[in-house]
């Protein structure tokens, strides 16, 4: 299970979910004969917060081992609408990892948000929802939901908000976050393109004197291009990512959803 808390390819070998990689420590002929309640269904997610919007995205491939179970598996879910069709929802949850746990986590959070609405007559704020999600995850600390969750919405001031989680409930609010199989491929790209890491003003000096490029919030169209580029890159280099790209944009006017094609190979 150590593998599920670390995205480090050096520790875990190539970042595939397949369990039949050669066992190094197992004695000759020894076979583990126990039910393993977890699998990794691959896939990747991504969220970027803007000044007055949040964009979330995820591919729609569901893999197990080298097989593609389906090409149409959404990883983004609207949370806490009044009705089951989530027409008036204001929060989006993305989950990636073990699909069954992801689904269970989504339904639990949604039910809690619906009860909140019923009791208080108003939707839950992202901040409250984020805190609650952390509690839900931590409640299963010793039999965790194997799911990397990202929660997106607009905060009380109307600014884009992204909260990212590990499987046992540690969380923080961030500007952007990539999750899942290709997180290690996408996150450095985001660091560079969203937070302008390692970008300096040309000819501004040598070494420590180099001036960092000034950070500015990205516009919605810039972010949309960024998301597509990030996934096109991930698809190219990761076998568990591909098929379709589900994007949700959360603004004060509600949630817009688009589906784009990705490479199916």
């Amino acid at each position: 299970m150590a593998a599920m808390f670390s995205q480090n390819p050096l520790m875990n070998g190539p970042n595939y979910s397949i369990s039949d990689t050669p066992r190094i420590n197992a004695p000759e002929g020894a076979r583990e004969h126990r039910f393993d309640p977890y699998t990794d269904n691959g896939g990747s997610t991504l969220a970027i917060a803007g000044a007055d919007f949040t964009i979330m995205a995820g591919d729609t491939r569901l893999a197990s081992g080298y097989s593609i179970n389906t090409r149409h598996y959404p990883k983004l879910f609207k949370i806490g609408g009044t009705t089951a069709d989530q027409k008036d929802a204001t929060i989006v949850l993305s989950v990636v990892g073990f699909a069954a746990d992801g689904e269970a986590l989504k339904e639990r959070l949604d039910t809690i948000c619906k009860m909140y609405r019923y009791r208080h007559g108003k939707p839950m704020s992202v901040k409250a929802c984020a805190q609650r999600l952390s509690t839900i995850l931590y409640q299963k600390r010793f039999f965790p939901y194997y799911a990397y969750a990202i929660l997106g919405g607009l905060d009380e001031e109307g600014k884009g908000a992204v909260y990212s989680y590990d499987p046992v409930g540690s969380y923080e609010r961030e500007q952007c976050r990539a999750g899942g199989a290709a997180a290690s491929l996408i996150m450095p790209f985001l660091d560079n393109q969203v937070n302008f890491k390692n970008q300096y003003v040309p000819n501004s000096g040598e070494g420590h004197a180099l001036q960092e490029r000034e950070r500015r919030p990205l516009t919605r169209s810039e972010v949309e291009v960024l998301v597509k580029d990030a996934f096109d890159g991930a698809v190219e280099r990761h076998i568990e990512v591909g098929d379709g790209l589900q994007i949700m944009a959360i603004t004060k006017d509600g949630i817009e959803e688009v589906m784009l094609p990705l490479k199916k190979d």
């Binding site: 699998t39 179970n69 090409r71 699909a99 069954a100 689904e103």
Partner: peptide, 22 residues
């Protein structure tokens, strides 16, 4: 749609279990 022993669910225009998936 399909469901397996771990509760994983998915849906697709065509589905196959076991060897049929290959």
């Amino acid at each position: 749609a399909s469901v397996d022993l771990r509760g994983t669910t998915f849906s697709s225009p065509s589905l196959a279990t076991g060897f049929g998936a290959m």
